[in-house]
Write a protein that binds this DNA or RNA. Structure first.
Lengths: 181, 181
DNA sequence: TGTGACATGTAATATGTTACATGATTGA
DNA sequence: TCAATCATGTAACATATTACATGTCACA
């Protein structure tokens, strides 16, 4: 396999953390994640793990503790090398910028009438406040001592929401009162 | 068309800002963007605008000012309604969270040796500093008076980088010195 | 023992990427 | 005028989504 996608690398990472690991346990990670970036659909995961196994990055064994046709996966040494290569410097160009669908919408907010723009800001602020509460709960459930990297990532999610919330307030004050365009 | 993708909505927005607009001018917006989220590949854009035209959201006319086989696109009233529906509350669930590839990597940083972890932090900090300078330049080139929404979006990109930079510093101090796992 | 949730997959489909082919324009 | 670049596309391919099919387990 010449190049792995972000999802494939991520799966490699998740398996390395939870091995031995069934495909369904893997899916749950994505299904339970608040992020909508990857759905964790069966049609994505099952073919993916077989792909990684064929490439020698994962290996599987029948799941003894189950009457199902399940297999449990582990990362091979080659898979581990691949994972480290993904993480180690230099940082991949596509990792330099995040993607914010909210910011994308703001770019085009001139298409709304001033009253709708104001409604957008109110609604977005509420959505961010709800997301903040959720992220705070996730952080509280991710103690530093248990898994520092999980804690660090959860903290990052929280900080990102705080930053977007503050930015929303900032531009609301910046923009001419009464709406624009 | 039952549902539009984020890219399709975004194209609707870009055309509404720059109409009349050739597909290539559209592509340039994505090609020139620092974000790697959409490549602006010809194979994505050309079929996409024809799709939107067939759905009655864009209309096109031959480009008079060119000897090429070009067509220029505009948003139809239906397209404009569609764009507003995308922007107006309630905020789509998938717009509540951003996606940060850097944070994703941090989640799995335990797979690196402590020395490599430190190298990751150094490298990421440098990358963010470079991105910050770039984002600042973009902001400076986006005066509030000229297009407030462009300014607002550019400011958001800058704030996001600042937030991630601060978070990186925060977790670096938080984590046990000498690396983890 | 039967019903609903859990779990493992496959099929059809849509979207977007890379690579390629071709014609127009620019400028050395 | 010829080469490089700009611009418009198409083709082959890969990846991920939704919807579907099927079997297993927990428990009422």
């Amino acid at each position: 396999m010449a190049e792995l996608s972000e999802l494939e690398h991520c799966v490699l990472g998740v398996v390395s953390l939870r091995q031995p690991c069934t495909p369904y346990a893997l899916r749950k990670v994505f299904l339970d994640s608040p992020s909508a970036h990857w759905s964790g659909s069966a049609g994505a995961i099952y073919p993916l793990v077989r792909r990684l196994e064929r490439a020698g990055l994962l290996r599987s064994a029948p799941d003894e503790s189950s009457g199902r046709a399940a297999r449990v996966y582990r990362v091979t040494p080659a898979g581990r090398r691949r994972l480290r290569a993904w993480l180690a410097p230099p940082l991949d160009a596509r990792a330099r910028f995040e993607f914010d669908p909210l910011r994308l919408r703001v770019r085009f907010l001139g298409a709304l009438l001033p009253a709708q723009q104001e409604a957008f800001f109110k609604d977005a602020a509420d959505a961010l406040d709800a997301a903040h509460a959720e992220a705070q709960a996730t952080l509280d459930a991710s103690p530093l001592a248990e898994d520092p990297w999980r804690h660090a990532a959860s903290l990052g999610a929280l900080r990102a929401i705080e930053s977007r919330r503050a930015w929303l307030e900032e531009i609301r004050n910046l923009l001419p009162a009464g709406g624009v365009e």
